[in-house]
Amino acid sequence: MTDDVDIRRMPLRDALRWLRENGEPIDPRPDIDTASLTQRFPRLAGVATHDLTVQSPHGPQPARVYRDAGAAVSGRALVWVHGGAFIGGYLDMPESNWVALELASRGIPVLAVDYTKCLGDVHHPVPSQDVLAAWGHSRTHAKDLLGVEADALLLGGASAGGTITAGVTAQLRDAGGPLPAGLVLVYPAVHPDGGHPGELPDPASPTTQLALNYAGSAEALADPQVFAGNGTGAGFPPTLIVVCERDGLRPSGEAFAAQLERAHVDVTLHLEPGADHAHINEPSDPTALPTIEAIADWIRR
């Protein structure tokens, strides 16, 4: 955020207008760039990055590859999608960049991808199609980009990124396309009102307002390809769901884990004690690294 503007405290309509007029706010933290992160976490020094663009039906989208040639090979790689309430977020935010650096340093190459934001004139399926394009690109170029076969690729995301990737997985399943080897969802909102899964969305809830802004219509709020929690989750790949003890969206992740279990999907639910929503966007948060370790351990198992 800038010193004088915090869009998180604005009504959604005002936040959308501000973002359209001004673009992504500058993050004031002085220690979240790659150089500062490497100084704080020397293990990240071996990670090499490469920026590229992925062609989507909606234009080129930024992406970044992370690989560490000196790390013990896990045999798997991850396509990773950051959050930002569907209206913000970018590749240099810690939830994208730091997470990818940490996983790559543990032998899990990462393709971090961006997507079109829903700023009033964009709704589903646009961000979803951007991520689908990145998924297709990663499969086509898996060996060259990430050093693994296409069938060793996992898909995952945090917050809004988790919502989108869960919906993309439902789309891939329904289309009969190749599914990810695994799905990683970190504090996702996979129900229209993430704080109250299974209930009719409360139109006054900020979470529901963001969900409607993403979905584009009340009808789309009920679509399992938009919010995967509307379905059973049957046919999903092995899935890790990370929820946070203090997160208001925790009920959505827990409910979806139960849905997947009922559908006989191999699902692991990891509760991060003491953590709140977006904790992996803050490298200094003592609960962040344990989540990174939990993700890496699950992927490597």
Rank of each mutant, 00 (worst) to 15 (best):
G182S: 05
V5A: 07
W135N: 09
V131L: 12
A72V: 14
L146H: 00
S56D: 11
D121F: 08
R40D: 07
V5D: 09
P273K: 02
Q39M: 02
S96R: 06
L221S: 03
A204Q: 10
G84P: 01
A189T: 05
A63R: 03
R139N: 09
L153N: 13
D3W: 01
G46H: 00
I299G: 02
S74M: 07
D27A: 13
E261L: 00
A234Y: 02
G248K: 02
L210H: 12
R106C: 04
H279N: 09
A69I: 02
T169C: 14
H279L: 12
A170V: 09
W135D: 09
Q39S: 04
P273S: 07
A100W: 01
A275E: 04
T232K: 00
R17Y: 08
L260R: 01
F256L: 03
H124L: 11
L111H: 08
G231T: 01
A211C: 08
T287R: 07
A77F: 02
W135E: 07
D51G: 13
V186E: 08
Q171P: 07
G182Y: 01
D276S: 15
M1G: 15
A45V: 05
Y115N: 13
V148A: 01
P178A: 12
Y90W: 15
L212Q: 04
P25I: 06
G147E: 07
V110K: 11
G46W: 00
R29V: 08
R67N: 12
L146K: 00
Y115E: 15
L153C: 11
R246M: 14
H270Y: 12
V65N: 03
V81M: 10
A278I: 15
Y90G: 10
Y90C: 11
G88M: 15
R13V: 14
D114F: 01
H137Q: 11
L37N: 03
A72E: 15
D202F: 00
Q55L: 15
G248H: 06
P62R: 09
Y214N: 09
V81A: 08
E21W: 06
S74C: 10
P125G: 04
I32P: 00
A100D: 12
P57S: 08
A158Q: 15
L154T: 11
A72P: 12
L91E: 06
Y187W: 10
A288P: 04
H270F: 11
L91V: 10
D92R: 14
V126A: 08
G59D: 02
A294T: 09
D6Y: 09
R64I: 07
T116H: 12
T34A: 15
R9N: 14
A218Q: 15
G248N: 13
A288D: 00
A222R: 11
P286K: 01
T291L: 03
V265L: 02
Q171E: 13
E282F: 14
T239S: 11
R262S: 04
A150E: 11
T208Y: 03
D27W: 10
P125S: 03
R106K: 13
I241T: 02
H196N: 13
V186K: 05
A211E: 07
V5N: 10
G248P: 08
A100K: 00
G274P: 01
Q225N: 04
A234N: 05
V186Y: 02
